[in-house]
Simulated scan of single mutants.
Amino acid sequence: MTRRVENVSTSLEDRLALRELVDNWAVWRDAGDWDRFATVWHPTDGWMTATWFQGPAAEFITVSREGFDRGVSILHFLGGHSADVNGDRAIAQTKMTINQRASIDGVDVDVLCTGRFYDFCARYDGEWKIVRRQPIYEKDRLDLVDPSARLALDPELLHRFPAGYRHLAYLQTKAGFSVKSGLPGLTGAAVRRLYDEGAKWLAGSANPGDTE
C-alpha cells in the first residue's frame, strides 16, 4: 500500500511540474521575461514550430524578443491540460488561444486562434523541459477593433491556408511574415502524424519527430 501511494505521488508531482512548465512558457513569453523564458526549453534540443517560425528555441527567443521590442502584439491564454508521462519522457497537451492584434490594409484587427499546444517534454537535470512545441490549430476568427470600420479580405490569400489558422495566416502574411502551410489542425493527416510522433517519443524514440 505504501509503495502504491508513493507511485501516485510521484506521478502527480510530475503532472503538476509539467503544468507549471506550460504556464511559465505563456506568462514569461508574453511578459517579455526572456531570461526566465529560456529556462522552460531543453538547453540543447529545444525546437519551436509556429505559423511564422520553425527553428531552435534559442532563435525563437531572439526573434520573439525583437518582435516584442517592435510592438508586435501576440498573447496566449491557456485552458485545460493533460499529460502522458513515461519515465523521463512526457507529452503535454494544453488548450490555448493565440490572440494577435495588427493592422490589415490600415484597419486594426484582432485574430483569435483556438487550439492546443502539443509539447514533447523530457526531464533534464531533474527538471521538466520542452524539447519540441507543436501547436495544433483548430479554428480561428478575425474581428475589427473598431466595429464601424470596413475591411475587404482577399479570398485567394485567405483560402491559401488551412481553416484552423486561416485568418491568423492572413494577418501574419500581410504583416510581412512567411507563414508555413500544412500545420496540424483538429483532424487530418498532419495531426495524425503528430500523434504518432508523440507515441514514439513516449516509447523512447531518439528524436521528437519533425523538427524541420
Rank of each mutant, 00 (worst) to 15 (best):
M1Q: 15
R3W: 09
E6S: 14
E6T: 14
T10K: 15
E13V: 15
D14C: 11
R19G: 11
E20K: 14
W25P: 01
A26E: 10
D30R: 07
A31H: 06
R36L: 05
V40P: 01
P43A: 05
T49F: 01
T49C: 05
T49E: 15
T51N: 09
W52M: 08
F53C: 09
A57D: 01
G67M: 06
G67I: 02
F68Y: 12
G71Y: 05
S73T: 11
G87Q: 03
D88A: 11
R89H: 09
T97P: 01
N99G: 11
N99T: 13
A102S: 14
I104W: 07
G106F: 12
L112Q: 10
L112I: 15
C113L: 13
G115R: 03
R116G: 03
R116D: 10
R116S: 12
F120Q: 12
R123N: 02
D125V: 06
D125C: 07
D125A: 09
G126D: 07
E127G: 05
W128C: 05
I130K: 05
V131C: 08
R132Q: 12
Y137R: 02
E138H: 08
L144P: 06
D146T: 09
P147Q: 06
A152K: 13
L153Q: 07
H159K: 00
P162F: 03
R166T: 01
R166H: 00
A169I: 01
K180R: 10
G185C: 03
T187L: 02
G188R: 04
R192N: 12
D196L: 09
G198E: 05
A199W: 01
A199Q: 11
L202G: 11
G209M: 04
D210M: 11
T211F: 01
